[in-house]
Amino acid sequence: MTQAFTGDRIILKDLGFYGYHGLMKEEKALGQRFFIDLECGVDLSAPALTDSIGKTVSYADIYDVVKQAFEGKRMHLIEAVAQNIVDAIFNAFQDVNWIIIRVRKPEAPIAMVRGEAAIELHRQRKIS
């Protein structure tokens, strides 16, 4: 069973981090920039009606969880980085019902003149 989709969301975009994720030896030693776009599905009816911070999930708190999950563990694949962040958000915020996360890697070790490599995960909280 899953939560109903409301369409409400908290959005964090272009979060920049420096990290050591990757398969290549150089990526692990030198690191590189990563950018994360995140949408968290949260019913925002109560904070919209009450104008009360106590009725919502703080985007500052979400950022702190994303930062800790990104920096806390080195991984080979950006897919695993994204899933680690998703898991951390679901664990920290019971009101988050679904997440769309994009991890972008502008300096991916491929011969591109312009652009970036990226992945996107769509996850919904599983209710048991």
Score class of each variant (00 low, 15 high):
Ile36Ala: 01
Arg74Met: 07
Asn97Leu: 08
Ile100Ser: 06
Glu39Gly: 00
Ala4Val: 08
Val96Lys: 02
Tyr59Arg: 08
Gly19Asn: 09
Asp43Gln: 02
Glu79Thr: 01
Ile53Pro: 05
Gly7Leu: 07
Gly19Val: 14
Trp98Met: 05
Leu12Phe: 11
Phe90Leu: 05
Trp98Pro: 00
Ala88Met: 05
Asp14Thr: 15
Leu30Glu: 11
Phe70Gly: 04
Tyr63Gly: 06
Ser45Arg: 13
Asp14Ser: 15
Val66Met: 06
Val81Cys: 02
Asp37Thr: 13
Gly22Leu: 13
Tyr63Ala: 01
Lys13Trp: 06
Arg33Ile: 10
Asp64Met: 10
His76Asp: 12
Glu107Asp: 13
Ile101Cys: 04
Val96Gln: 06
His21Gly: 05
Asn91Arg: 10
Met75Arg: 15
Glu26Ile: 11
Gly31Cys: 04
Glu79Arg: 00
Gly16Glu: 15
Arg9Ile: 09
Asn97Pro: 05
Ile101Arg: 08
Gly19Cys: 07
Tyr59Ala: 12
Ile101Thr: 10
Ile101Tyr: 03
Ile11Glu: 08
Lys55Thr: 08
Leu77Pro: 08
Tyr20Phe: 15
Ile101Gln: 04
Ile85Trp: 10
Gly16His: 10
Gln94Asn: 14
Arg74Gly: 11
Asp95Cys: 00
Thr6Phe: 12
Ala82Glu: 01
Ala4Ser: 14
Asp43Ile: 01
Ile53Leu: 15
Asp51His: 12
Thr50Asn: 14
Gln32Phe: 00
Gly16Lys: 12
Lys25Met: 12
Lys25Val: 14
Tyr18Glu: 11
Ile62Asn: 00
Ser58Arg: 07
Ala108Ser: 11
Arg9Phe: 02
Gly19Met: 10
Asn84His: 13
Ser52Val: 00
Pro106Ser: 02
Glu27Gln: 13
Leu15Gln: 09
Phe70Tyr: 08
Val42Ala: 00
Cys40Lys: 05
Pro109Arg: 00
Gln32Trp: 04
Asp8Glu: 10
Tyr18His: 14
Asn84Gly: 05
Val42Leu: 01
Ile89Asn: 03
Gln83Pro: 00
Phe90Ile: 14
Ala80Gln: 09
Arg33Gly: 02
Ile53Lys: 03
Thr50Trp: 07
Met75Lys: 15
Thr56Tyr: 06
Ile101Pro: 03
Leu15Met: 12
Ala80Thr: 10
Val103Phe: 09
Asp43Met: 05
Cys40His: 03
Tyr20Asn: 04
Lys25Ser: 14
Glu71Ile: 01
Gly54Pro: 03
Ala48Lys: 15
His21Trp: 10
Leu12Val: 15
Val96Leu: 04
Asn97Trp: 04
Ala69Pro: 06
Lys73Ala: 01
Ala46His: 11
Asp64Pro: 00
Tyr63Thr: 00
Glu26Val: 14
Val96His: 01
Val103Tyr: 09
Leu12Cys: 14
Phe90Lys: 10
Lys105Met: 04
Ala82His: 06
Phe93Gly: 08
Ile36Phe: 08
Asp8Gly: 10
Ala111Arg: 15
Ala29Leu: 15
Asn84Thr: 15
Asn91Lys: 10
Ile101Leu: 06
Glu39His: 09
Pro109His: 02
Ala29Arg: 11
Asp37Trp: 03
Ile78Pro: 04
Ala4Leu: 11
Met75Trp: 05
Tyr63Arg: 03
Lys13Gln: 12
Ala108Tyr: 03
Gln94Pro: 06
Phe93Ala: 03
Gly16Ala: 12
Ile99Phe: 04
Lys105Leu: 02
Val57Tyr: 00
Glu27Asn: 03
